[in-house]
């Protein structure tokens, strides 16, 4: 049985971030890939939308410059023939501040001929910002 594209992509992504070795990842990304991590790109440069392999490799480089992945757990995964949806829990460290960050992430990926052609990622960004700040953001209560 052939290995699902998601597993190859996940290993290559981890290698690109933690070991700064993007060659495997580059081979697994479609030239016209669409990539969106929903969130405030003016706060975190690696959030937002990208189009094309070069732009996606660039954002992966930005991730490698900013965080290190310590651990990830797959909490829920659904695999289709050329698609995957997963809910993951990541333990990261922000490199400059050495601050730990714990995130749940929803990923929706689509592949074509074994290469990533679409990735959409959703994060509880309010929580991410509070963790990056190291302090809660106080909001008004709305009944």
């Amino acid at each position: 049985m052939t290995e699902h594209s998601l597993w190859r992509f996940s290993r290559a992504m981890l290698r690109a971030i933690n070991e700064r070795q993007p060659a495997d990842l580059e081979a697994l990304i479609d030239d016209d890939v669409e990539w969106t991590v929903y969130g405030p790109a003016d706060m975190f440069t690696f959030l937002g939308a990208r189009r094309g392999k070069a732009a996606v490799l660039d954002v992966c480089q930005q991730l490698a410059d900013n965080v290190r992945v310590h651990r990830f757990d797959r909490e829920s995964i659904m695999l289709g023939e050329d698609s995957a949806a997963s809910m993951m829990r990541y333990s990261l460290t922000a490199l400059d501040s050495n601050r730990p960050i714990s995130l749940r992430i929803a990923q929706f990926a689509q592949f074509r001929a074994g290469r990533l052609r679409s990735m959409r990622v959703l994060i509880d960004t309010f929580d991410l910002i509070e963790q990056a700040l190291g302090a809660p953001i106080h909001l008004p209560k709305i009944a």
């Binding site: 969130g39 405030p40 003016d42 706060m43 410059d65 900013n66 309010f126 700040l133 909001l139």
Partner: peptide
């Protein structure tokens, strides 16, 4: 899950990014 920070801004009707952007960039960026 959703982009909760963006939804908070939409519900409150004002931008919060400027308020926190400098602090977050300082904490995160290389």
């Amino acid at each position: 899950f959703f982009d909760s920070f963006d939804l908070v801004q939409q519900v409150l009707g004002h931008d919060l990014a400027d308020e926190f952007a400098t602090s977050v960039r300082g904490a995160m960026e290389h």
